[in-house]
């Protein structure tokens, strides 16, 4: 059974990898799904500790703006740009995290929100540095300084994003099984016991928060390069809320959930933009409500339940 499930993963990743060949016009959208998935993964990492962040757009935007600045440096290779952008966001998360990991529940949600709104306002108002509401152009060069055509770069970016997503998902999975990752759920359940076992809950959360910031920043950098542009809206609180929605749609249970949630979210938004024009949020609201109310473990819970039932049938 386990082997079947592993094979299925390979098939999903492999299938995703060949999609741009089958439908080249979708490459951009597919890359965006991966970028959003990384941000949703970042949010679901904190969800493991029962903490909802309504401010992760801060790190997403940080990654994208960092990519914009790095692009201005001559010869900033796309891989290096992605790495450095992600690191910048992680660094920002370290600084913010020193404050934020002291808070739980609603206060955690609100402080994240406040920080991201400060960033949003600064991005909007510090025109000379950030380009104000116009934002900045994000550019990246291809392999080893060779100029690549726009489609070449788009393809390269897609495969880099896919590789980054697979690596990140794999790492988060491994991390969540280690004591420091397991501790996240333990903190949600009984923080007092964690402290009475001699473990600093704040340090556990800070590590997760930095990792989470780095993942969101990576997502932001990928999206920034894919779009070719970044604007302050990427830091607005509704962007953060979107990531939360993806994480919840997917179900916090496993790393795959975040990507499934992002894909569903993006599909819904494309669909709604085409056929519903103005009622996209209405539809999204109804879907979120139904999921929270009736299927709190999301897409992942649905999928996992299916396997459980099959395993039970086998016995």
């Amino acid at each position: 059974m386990r082997a079947v499930r592993s094979l299925l993963w390979l098939a999903v990743v492999g299938g995703y990898a060949v999609l741009p060949w089958l439908a080249p016009s979708l490459t951009y959208q597919l890359t965006i799904v991966l970028a959003l998935g990384l941000a949703a993964l970042a949010v679901s990492l904190m969800l493991q500790a029962g903490l909802i962040s309504f401010g992760h757009a801060l790190f997403y935007a940080a990654g994208a703006y960092a990519a914009a600045y790095l692009g201005r440096l001559t010869g900033a290779h796309v891989v290096i740009t992605l790495l450095l952008s992600s690191l910048s966001a992680a660094l920002l998360a370290l600084i913010a995290g020193l404050l934020i990991v002291r808070y739980r529940g609603i206060f955690f949600a609100m402080l994240n929100l406040a920080l991201s709104m400060v960033a949003y306002t600064l991005l909007l108002k510090l025109y000379n540095v950030t380009g104000g509401s116009d934002g900045l152009v994000v550019s990246a060069t291809g392999v080893a300084g060779y100029a690549m055509g726009p489609t070449g770069l788009a393809d390269l970016l897609f495969y880099l994003a896919l590789a980054a997503a697979v690596l990140a998902a794999w790492f988060v999975r491994v991390y969540l099984r280690s004591p420091a990752g397991w501790a996240l759920g333990a903190i949600q359940d009984r923080e007092i016991r964690v402290e009475y076992l001699g473990v600093s809950a704040r340090r556990v959360l800070l590590v997760a928060y930095v990792l989470s910031g780095g993942l969101a920043g990576l997502g932001g950098a990928i999206a920034g390069i894919a779009v070719g542009h970044v604007a302050p809206d990427s830091a607005y609180w509704t962007t953060s809320a979107g990531f939360v929605v993806m994480a919840v749609l997917g179900g916090g249970g496993d790393v795959f959930g975040a990507f499934a949630g992002a894909a569903l979210y993006e599909m819904l938004s494309v669909f709604a933009a085409q056929y519903l024009s103005s009622s996209w949020e209405l539809l999204l609201g109804v879907i979120i409500f139904v999921i929270v109310r009736f299927a709190p473990s999301g897409l992942w819970g649905f999928y996992d339940g299916l396997w459980r039932r099959m395993a039970a049938g086998e016995r």
């Binding site: 280690s178 004591p179 001699g198 590590v207």
Partner: peptide, 29 residues
């Protein structure tokens, strides 16, 4: 004060990890 959703065994493994070495090593499940 227990980790209620987790197995008795996992509760104990976590306490062992908290006390000994290797708590921060991500590759050690």
């Amino acid at each position: 004060q227990l980790f209620m959703q987790r197995s008795v065994r996992d509760n104990l493994r976590f306490a062992v990890a908290a006390h000994g070495t290797g708590f921060w090593r991500p590759w050690r499940a």
